[in-house]
Design a protein around this nucleic acid. Sequence first.
RNA 1: AGGCAUGUAGCUCAGUGGGAGAGCACCGUCCUGACACGGCGGGGGUCGGCGGUUCAAGUCCGCCCAUGCCUACCA
Length: 878
Amino acid sequence: MSGSNLPRTYDAKGAEERFYPWWEENGFFQGDPEGEGEPYSIVIPPPNVTGSLHMGHALNNAIQDFLIRYKRMDGYNAVWIPGTDHAGIATQWVVERQLREQGLDRRDMGREAFLERVWAWKEESGSVITHQLRSLGVSCDWSRERFTMDEGLSAAVRHVFVKLYESGLIYRGTRMINWDPVGQTVLSDLEVEHEENYQGEMWSFAYPLAEGGGEIVVATTRPETMLGDTAVAVHPDDPRYVDLVGKMVRHPLLDREFPIVADAELVDPEFGTGAVKVTPAHDPNDFGVGKRHDLPFLTVLDDQARVNELGGRFEGLDRYEARTAVKEAMAELGLDRGTEPHLMSVGRSQRSGAIVEPMISTQWFVKMGPLAEPAIEAVENGETKFIPERWENTYFAWMRDIRDWCISRQLWWGHQIPAWYCDDCDAVTVAMEDPTACSACGSASIRRDEDVLDTWFSSALWPFSTLGWPSNTPELSKWYPTAVLVTGFDIIFFWVARMLFSGIHHMGGVPFADVFIHGLVRDTNGEKMSKTKGNVVDPLKTIEAHGCDAFRFTLAQYATQGRDILWDDNRVEVNSRFINKIWQAFRFADMNLEDFQPGNDVELGAYDRWILVRTGEAVRRVREAMDGHRFNEVATEIHAFVVGEFCDWYIEFSKQAIYGDGPERGAAQQTLVEVLAAIARLIHPVMPFLSEEIWQQLPDSAKGGVESVMMAPYPKASDFPEDPELLAAVAPVQESIGALRKLKADMGLAPRLGISVLVDGEVSTALMAHEGALAHLAGVERLEPLRGEEPANCATLPVSGGRLVIPLDGLVDIDAERARLTSEIEKTSKDVNDLEKRLSNEGFVARAPAQVVDGFRVKLAGATEKLDKYKAALKEIS
RNA sequence: AGGCAUGUAGCUCAGUGGGAGAGCACCGUCCUGACACGGCGGGGGUCGGCGGUUCAAGUCCGCCCAUGCCUACCA
């Protein structure tokens, strides 16, 4: 009589394969800058073009998809711009490694051939990650996909460089920089990772005084740098060294002499001997000393950190070989004053892992002061808000103490710096179009700067370069500024801060209203996932095994604001069962709809109206959570509503009507369809595929002619009725069913055992009206009002506004009921005592809000009534 | 050294001054016409510690302990 053609278990993979291409081909992801609605735009944090999808991407992009799908359904003019990053160092590194495996070196190939090779690799692997992203179900507008090195974005980069150069915000300067001797490029401060508790050594040695007859002992963690020493510094007030200041020491390994200087800034007289060796060209502090005392800056290491010609007989040694050799040589001279183990911190290249060498070098810099200031103000005055807010402190701390940004890199893959040097007059020409002559002297003998820009230089422009800037496009005027940037805390400095000052400077306003910062995905033990540790969870494998929606729902559950995630893949499997449960609920409706006649003006039953009221409440809670970006709460509310209200109660209630053939059947059908249509839309941002599958199978009447759920309006609480009285009327039914089920469990009775129930008290009338539900859900075979004396051997269940009396003859020993009542009395007494104690507190009654006090009085009344009923029942059977 | 965060059930975590919650795990029970990938019922907590504010503190304040992260030029 009823049936369904739907599969018995939900086919997640089938839905994914059918709907994603359908959505994309029909242009459902595409934004229209000329279209209706308030703008809501997001730009994707562009993944490395040759990278592959990991859990961090999955979390990041799932969150963006939750938001964009929600807003799109809610009537906004929504667009999500995808794209990829050329990832300068990372990509060049990968290709160089490929070359090395073939015995090739990029220097032998030359720049042009090498770049061809990188482009080929980009073409080969560049679509991998964007296709992996599609497996996540993300609704990016792929027709607007961009790449940081495509024509338009390269033009934006060049435009910015020229503009900043002309206004003096980009300059070329000679500074102490971080040098990666393995990658052989300069790095910004951010690309240096500090490793604490590195086990090093503190080596002390003596510099002999040039005049003879004395020495001064200094200590260092880097013996090889003594080859570049050009001073010894002491504190000006240190009595031990007052007489030595101004005297010369002799370099025992090189034919040089240099002075002892007094420097209060560098030297702490309490530390060590109070005398410090000074290497102005290989230490950031000593660099300052060199400037202050006008010392020579002797660079003694080459770009591979090998000792150069200034190192005398140590020339050609690598810095660590030189370290040993210098110590040995000094020991032979009797100048070694001992070595002690020393814990220190070292800076390593983020990419190569090499210990970074401080070097003096001429590089390009962005002058940060004037750019940082308005970017700080914008966050201070709330134009851009961080969520959670505490990240603003991190942002402020860095921005207020910011140093100029070194933007040149000695790489080939990237945006080549548009600067030309003149052989004849040394002038620099920076121009939008490639120049043929020096802008100063007109000489045709000009050479282009070989270096490229830091990858983050182009990323900084992403929120407007992807919208067509510097052209004045419709996209730019509609979608800039973007609504929200979703990213991890690890790139607040690298990227978020730089987008902020870039947007403000070039566009005249912040690039995004909100910055949503999520945590890191770690393994079950809280360890960072890494290939070397072998604890990486592959999101694609998880999706393959359990389905995209289960995976996304799990991400939503985990996405508590600001906390790292300890990923347990098992949860995805658990959630796939929840997905299937929603499917089963839909199947229940579907297999009972063959005679459904939509549009009939059926009168809804109490349970129908009840679930509609409940649905409205759930919609309100889900919306609130979504608006607050509390995705874990979104997941919780969806689960609580679908399982706890719709499945556990409404579907069970509705069976009485559905299995009959009266008009209530039509009303239940109508309600099932309506609620399922709401559920499909409600869950869509998190579970796009299941929701579409349900939507496609629902009767047309429920869909308002909308062909895809992703284009349907997100449910509003106001679509549903409010009815507190109805909720109050159904509550005792649920309470009674619960109490009867528990009684059976406590007494060891079979759950489906038919029982008789006598109802007593003011609630009787209400319960008598729900006889069917009590029969169906609690096995009540006979329900009637208690008249006169209650029979002997009964169990008593207090419920709000009355009690249920269940004759136990032939069911269970009366002792069991006596024990049960005694236990309940004990519990309830404690409850009553606690409440009485609270209410007898005069301060509480006098000072707490009346509403709160009344609330507790009602609870006390209820508990007391319950206690009295238990006591009376016990007395009755004793 | 400074800063930020975290500490709640066996595990992972919600919790917005008003009687401590969820999922998983655990125990008991039921294959009832959506779902055993399930239903029903249950046990389990000194909310890291000490003090303070308040009628009332997991929640606000202070100190301490533990853990994690970020920033920093300590020879």
